[in-house]
């Protein structure tokens, strides 16, 4: 009788582990990752407000995923800045481009380009209803640096990694967003 209970408990644990990993995997784009648990980025906006929000977004992710660190470096070639042209289509707020060496699975290059077709809110306060929140979009893009995929489940439409953002909307990093990143970088 006791053996049966133990066996049942173990089965439940294993099923829960499998369910956890399956859920997490659904939000990881690939197994691509960085070769180090620290990656350097360089904000390249002319205005300090935009660059400060980029730093704030990086810092927020750092607090949510202790096993991985975003650090700023003026010599980094992983840059975040406005679209020089042709990188961000109409209807898109920002795009992250990253490049992986298929032999190692390591990301070697990562850049974020922001639309120049939008009216951005670069402040720390909540965005007004006629501007897109630069901080929220930057946090979303940094999520892709962990190779997190966009989320397309409408039940998670309020999560940071959902595939679209509304004007005047501010989102924060939730467990739905950071748990897969923690698995990638324990």
């Amino acid at each position: 009788m006791k053996t049966k209970k133990i066996f049942t408990a173990i089965c439940i644990i294993l099923i829960l582990q499998f369910a956890l990993v399956s859920t997490v995997s659904a939000h990881i784009d690939t197994n691509d990752k960085w070769s180090s648990n620290r990656v350097y980025f360089k904000p390249v906006y002319a205005g300090s407000d935009a660059n400060n929000r980029i730093r704030e977004a990086a810092s927020d992710w750092n607090s949510k995923v202790p096993g991985f660190t975003f650090s700023e470096s003026s010599s980094s070639f992983h840059q975040l800045g406005p679209d020089p042209g042709g990188m961000v289509p109409y209807g898109v707020a920002a795009a992250t481009y990253y490049w992986v060496n298929p032999n190692t699975g390591y990301i070697e290059e990562c850049d974020v380009y922001y639309s120049t077709s939008l009216s951005w809110h670069y402040g720390t306060s909540s965005p007004p209803s006629d501007k897109f929140d630069f901080l929220t979009v930057t946090k979303h893009e940094f999520g892709h640096w962990y190779s997190l995929d966009d989320c397309y489940e409408s039940s998670h439409s309020s999560s940071l990694m959902y595939y679209h953002i509304d004007v005047g909307q501010r989102k924060s990093i939730s467990s739905h967003d950071y748990n897969p990143a923690r698995i990638m970088y324990p």
Partner: peptide, 30 residues
Amino acid sequence: LGANKNARIAENEINKSNLIGHVHSSNIKF
């Protein structure tokens, strides 16, 4: 779960000419 990745990491042969590009876009809600 991590074994596959470690095996790939062991293949430390860099071939920059065949990097795989990925693009993720944040769409505007309409």
